[in-house]
Every structure is written in structure tokens, then in C-alpha cells.
Deep mutational scan, measured.
Amino acid sequence: MSGNGNAAATAEENSPKMRVIRVGTRKSQLARIQTDSVVATLKASYPGLQFEIIAMSTTGDKILDTALSKIGEKSLFTKELEHALEKNEVDLVVHSLKDLPTVLPPGFTIGAICKRENPHDAVVFHPKFVGKTLETLPEKSVVGTSSLRRAAQLQRKFPHLEFRSIRGNLNTRLRKLDEQQEFSAIILATAGLQRMGWHNRVGQILHPEECMYAVGQGALGVEVRAKDQDILDLVGVLHDPETLLRCIAERAFLRHLEGGCSVPVAVHTAMKDGQLYLTGGVWSLDGSDSIQETMQATIHVPAQHEDGPEDDPQLVGITARNIPRGPQLAAQNLGISLANLLLSKGAKNILDVARQLNDAH
């Protein structure tokens, strides 16, 4: 009898209710805020589980004197976190989706994509230029951005401005803007500013005609071990179906173009009346040469937790077992079709030249 009692006690200790789920994140304040929001949602869904947040620095956090596009290494903000995932030191990792490459290392998958916040870019102005827009900034004003995508589009749109690289986390960039006289304004992701509670610093939100956004911008991705079915089931509740389908289309477009950090590629997606609209573009580094096109596809946005595919093969690095396969494939095909259209119009040449120029500098 006593033996059975011990077995029952052991089973209770090993039951999922007692389990601590370890969540990996970057150390920056924004990353911690984003991770806290994901953990809060998981806690609400699984009140019996405990969650421990483990923060670590990544290569991208450490190399702050070089433009991201020049470092010449993929997975700048993800490699150390993936290493911890691989060694079973954490069970899942919360990322900004735009930091996750469209091809993940073997053994990993994006197990959830959370509801997207505003994906557009924002302009934050130096205190002396508050009330201005990019259009009304004085001639030769210097605007800071760490992104080739932003610089290429904005140089084309605002030729009277000069664009220079600015690195560091959000706090560091804002301090550089406010305390030094080098920059009249800087460009940042609206979602990051909003998550930090800095709505009052948003001086201008850039519309798609001015600057399309990065693939996955404004959404959070939760990376897990691809074979860890328990954790895949656990994080599945975080999937937002519309965000998922938009981001599958965007990531398929980028992957098929073979774009990345070192080339200016941008997108804009919208879901309306059962249609998914995808606009994508590529630019030369100075913005003088560009190709942009829009395509659409009829896609039914499923309700969360309709029964999805059981075999769960990944699409552009994403596993969404609780979302039907048909809409996911339709979104992926839309991204591939748009990429093929741009490639047929000469996108590869623009991107190759951009890559060579970026590598040469």
C-alpha cells in the first residue's frame, strides 16, 4: 500500500501541473516587456503551470559599433537563445518575429505568432524639431536608422535628408537623439515604442507609400524545439490566425527572394473581405531603383483552434497545428507568387547589386 502511495506522490510531482516552463529572452527592456506579455497570456491559459524567465545577451546586443547589415552573420539576435533551447536550458524563446530568419536551424520551429501590433515605422524627432515631419525637416538634416530597408525607401522619398546608421537598443538610440546634436530624427518601429509606453515620442507614423515595413514587423514569434510536442501544444494558444497568415505570406515572399538583413526588402499586408493583399518591394541601397507589386488571394481566416493538420510540417519556419492547413498554404503560395513576379521584373539584379555594395563598404 505504502509503495503505491509513493508512486502516486511521484506521479503528482512529475505531472504537468508541477512543471516549471523556462522562457528565454534577450536582456533589453523591450525584450523583457514583450516576454512578460507572452508569459502573462500563458499564465492565464495555464494557471497550474509556473513560468521562469531567463534573460541573456546576444551577438546583436554586444556589437554596437557596426551596422547590422555589415556584421555579416545571420541570427544576430537569436543564436545564443537557440543555443540555450538546444541544450534544454529553456523550453521556449520569445523573439520579435522580424529577427527570426525565414529558414531556422534544424530542430527549431516557430510554435506561435502572437497578435500583431502596429507594424509601421515611426519617426521620433529631436526636441528642437518636435512638430515637424520628415518632409518639413531642414535641408541636409541627419536621420538615424539601423535599417537598409528604411534608408533606401526614405532616401527616395525625401532626397533633402541624409540617413546615417544608429545602433543600440531603444533606450540607447533615444538617448543619442536627445543628448547629442548629430541626429534631427530617428526611425523606429511603432510597436516597440508603444510597448515601452513611449507613445508621446511618436512624431509621425510612416504610411506604406512612404515606407513599407519589415517582414514580420510588429509581431512576436515564440520559438521552440520542433519535436517538443508538449510545448508546441502549450504555445499553440498564442497563435493569432490573421497575423499568422499575413506573416506566412510575408516570410514566403522574403524567403523566395532570398532577402535578408543586408538587402532592402519591404512588405505591406492587409486582410479585407476574405482577401489577403500582399505588397512587396525591393530597392537599391540608395533607393534610386525599385520594383513594387501587389497581389491578392482569397483566404478564409479560420477561428482559433479549428482542428489543424496533425502532421505539422513547417511552413517558412512556422508550425501551427491548430490552424487549418489550406489557408496557410494559400498564404505561402501568395508570397511565392509575388516573389516570382518581382524576380521576373529584375528584382534579383537589384538585390545582387545591393548585396555587393553593402559587402564592399
Rank of each mutant, 00 (worst) to 15 (best):
C247A: 15
K128R: 08
H160I: 11
H300S: 07
V130G: 06
H126T: 08
L30Y: 04
V143D: 04
E210P: 02
Q180N: 15
S57W: 09
G346T: 08
Q50C: 00
R255G: 11
M196F: 14
M295W: 09
V215F: 05
V282E: 01
L338S: 12
D178H: 12
I318N: 05
C114R: 09
T109K: 13
P101W: 01
P101I: 09
A112P: 05
P241C: 14
K157N: 13
S37L: 12
Q153A: 06
I54N: 11
G274S: 01
H239G: 02
R150K: 02
M212D: 00
E250I: 01
L42D: 02
E162I: 12
A297M: 01
H256Q: 09
I318W: 01
A360L: 06
W283A: 03
D36V: 12
G335C: 08
E250V: 01
K348I: 15
A112W: 03
L342D: 02
E162G: 09
T25F: 04
P47G: 08
H160E: 12
V142E: 11
Q181N: 06
L238C: 04
G60K: 02
N322R: 13
L285K: 08
N322G: 00
L244S: 14
G203W: 14
G221Y: 04
K43L: 08
W198P: 06
R26P: 00
Q50F: 07
Q194E: 06
R116G: 06
I63T: 00
K132V: 10
E223A: 04
S141L: 10
H126A: 10
G216V: 03
E209D: 09
Q34K: 00
T133N: 13
I336Y: 00
T190M: 03
A112C: 14
G107P: 03
L285Q: 08
S75V: 06
L232K: 12
V215A: 09
L148T: 09
T294A: 08
R164M: 12
Y46R: 08
L188E: 02
Q204T: 01
N340V: 03
T319Y: 15
H256R: 11
V94I: 06
M212S: 10
S344P: 14
S28P: 00
L42Y: 04
V39Y: 10
G281R: 08
G308W: 11
H207S: 14
D233N: 13
E242M: 05
I33S: 11
V90L: 12
Q304C: 13
L245R: 03
V143Q: 04
A297C: 15
D286K: 06
V202Y: 08
L315Y: 00
E242H: 15
E89A: 11
V215Y: 00
S165H: 11
L177V: 12
S262L: 00
Q356C: 02
G274C: 04
G308V: 13
A122D: 06
S146L: 04
A151K: 07
D312S: 02
T66K: 02
G259A: 11
G326W: 10
D61W: 06
R116Y: 04
K227S: 09
H126L: 08
L49Y: 15
A31H: 00
V39C: 10
L254A: 02
G236V: 08
E250A: 06
L170I: 10
G281N: 00
K43C: 08
R321G: 12
N322F: 14
L161W: 07
A297Q: 05
K348S: 15
S45H: 08
H239R: 02
K74I: 08
E258T: 03
T58L: 05
